[in-house]
Design a protein around this nucleic acid. Structure first.
Length: 477
RNA sequence: GGGCAGGUAGCUCAGUCGGUAGAGCAGUUGGCUUUUAACCAAUUGGUCCUGGGUUCGAAUCCCAGCCUGCCCA
């Protein structure tokens, strides 16, 4: 098959066509013309030949790109013989073409271009995937995403929506006077979260670096510097397991607002996510469907969203949970079918119960507030109850979508909390960050939003690999 | 890391009890001047994931490995 395509390529050259083209100025994209369609327009449209229906002296073909398709009509009577023969004999499904002609509507009502001239833009030497099923082999979808995109409308929709969601988040925050910034991805100390980092090495500096696991400690330095509303929307890296919900590199939004607190930020996140759902899904009741198109779950984003303290949620699992001794709590785990390991601290035991019995079963939005201090070293402690911090963790669709804090800005408390978390490993403390706090950070509310999980929620995707263009896979060898 | 499922033509997939490797689409050839998964006829195309083993004979049974997916940790 390759050989046949190559011989067509040679014939194109013999006939004076450059098979890998060049600049081609268009009046419309295929999808753009579809939207702005009127009869009798002179147009130039380019795209990949995605279908052809050959009727002898007449033939139809579609040109398409990520944004849509347009039917073209080629008739032996309307064009010079060589133009007709060029398409008929040398153009295959998958080739890129520039098409010039006039718009009209066919007998069957299809908006079309009556072709008068063709320009070869690129010859495809390999065939397109199955025109009806597309590619469904997961490995091919992920390793050769372009084949997935050119053959599966659903994938195109997901990634178009992802792109538009990112733009809309930037626009939304910009309207609120947030400034977008970029902070280091190569960090000397990987701070801002508890996760194993990727390690690397800078040769000229002779110094090890870590790929960031969070931008938080740098964004807070910017609060110290006087940025009062600031966000970063970019990649984090965590050297941990890969699963349906985890990719080693993932996209995170972090935003900080001076003089705010976690409740101000919860209000904003609630409004932002509802805005995105209304804009891109047209509804706050999002239906997730299975392969057959049957609705398996409906997520209701109607406001106001539930806000419930961590303490109360555990009482819903076991009313006596907080009265139990640590030993009794471990016993209850066995009864509840929650697996724990012997080395776990008491608060970790409770957190396991939270994750298995509450988080995984919560699909409609819930802000879990006031979680135990040990779980969040970077948030302010609650004034009335120092055992908890002033934070929320937003659960939707059984996963944490967004954390939000009243940010800790007391340098002394911050130091002791980080020391406590680091234990023996004091080299993991970002002294430069503590130095910045000593210069004075305004009180602030901060949030993170896991963008991949948000896009999964909005598109009804069951796997993070279906919303990341090139998910991490093992090398072939 | 553990368990389960899968890997067959470019793509989507069948393959019975271990007995010559199959279909649809794509491709090729021919026909057809308004089709839209166009249609009709003919036809090409295989490292059956890899490597061992059992057997007269392996896509099929056994062992090891690779890759993917799902579940668990």
């Amino acid at each position: 098959m390759l050989a046949i395509r190559r011989s067509k390529l040679e014939k194109l050259k013999e006939l004076g066509h450059e098979p890998f083209g060049g600049r081609y100025d268009t009046t419309h994209s295929p999808g753009g013309l579809q939207e702005a369609f009127a009869e009798g327009l002179s147009v130039r449209v380019a795209g990949r030949v995605s279908a052809r229906r050959d009727m002898g002296k007449t033939l139809f073909f579609d040109v398409s790109d990520i944004g849509g398709r347009m039917q073209c009509f080629l008739n032996a009577k309307n064009v010079p013989e060589e133009v007709f023969a060029l398409f008929r004999d040398l153009i295959d499904l998958g080739d890129w073409l520039g098409v010039e002609g006039e718009t009209f509507i066919t007998k069957t009502g299809e908006p079309s271009i009556k072709v008068t001239a063709l320009t070869v833009l690129s010859k495809a030497l390999r065939p397109m995937p199955d025109k009806w099923h597309g590619v469904s082999d997961r490995e091919i979808k992920y390793r050769q995403r372009y084949l997935d995109l050119m053959s599966n409308a659903r994938s195109r929709e997901v990634f178009l929506m992802r792109s538009r969601v990112l733009s809309e988040i930037r626009r939304y925050l910009g309207n609120l006077d947030y400034l977008e910034v970029e902070t280091p991805m190569l960090q000397g100390v990987a701070g801002g979260a508890a996760a194993r980092p990727f390690e690397t090495f800078h040769n000229a500096l002779g110094q090890p670096f870590y790929l960031r696991i969070a931008p938080e400690l740098y964004l807070k330095r910017l609060l110290v510097g006087g940025f009062t509303k600031v966000f970063e929307l970019n990649r984090n890296f965590r050297n941990e397991g890969i699963s349906r919900r985890h990719n080693p590199e993932f996209t995170m939004l972090e935003a900080y607002q001076a003089y705010g607190d976690f409740e101000v930020m919860a209000d904003m996140v609630e409004d932002l996510i509802c805005h995105l759902a209304e804009t891109f899904c047209g509804t706050l009741k999002i239906e997730h469907k299975d392969e057959e198109g049957l609705v398996v779950r409906t997520i209701d984003l109607s406001r106001p969203w539930r806000r419930t303290p961590y303490r109360e949620l555990l009482q819903q699992v076991d009313p006596q949970w907080w009265e139990h001794t640590p030993e009794k709590r471990r016993e209850r785990c066995a009864e509840l079918g929650v697996e724990i390991s012997p080395g776990m601290e008491d608060y970790e035991v409770t957190q396991q119960v939270f994750e298995k019995k509450i988080e995984e079963k919560t699909f409609d939005p819930c802000f879990v507030t006031h979680v135990p201090t040990e779980l969040v070293p970077l948030a302010k402690q609650n004034r009335a109850d120092g055992r908890v911090v002033d934070v929320y963790e937003l659960i939707i669709n059984g996963v944490e979508i967004s954390p939000g804090y009243s940010e800790l800005n007391d340098p002394n408390v911050q130091r002791s909390r980080l020391m406590h978390q680091a234990g023996e490993e004091t080299q993991n403390i970002d002294e430069e960050f503590l130095l910045a706090l000593e210069h004075g950070m305004p009180p602030a509310g901060g949030i993170g939003i896991g963008i991949d999980r948000l896009v999964m929620l909005l598109t009804g995707s069951e796997s993070i690999r279906d919303v990341v263009l090139f998910p991490q896979l093992k090398n072939r060898e």
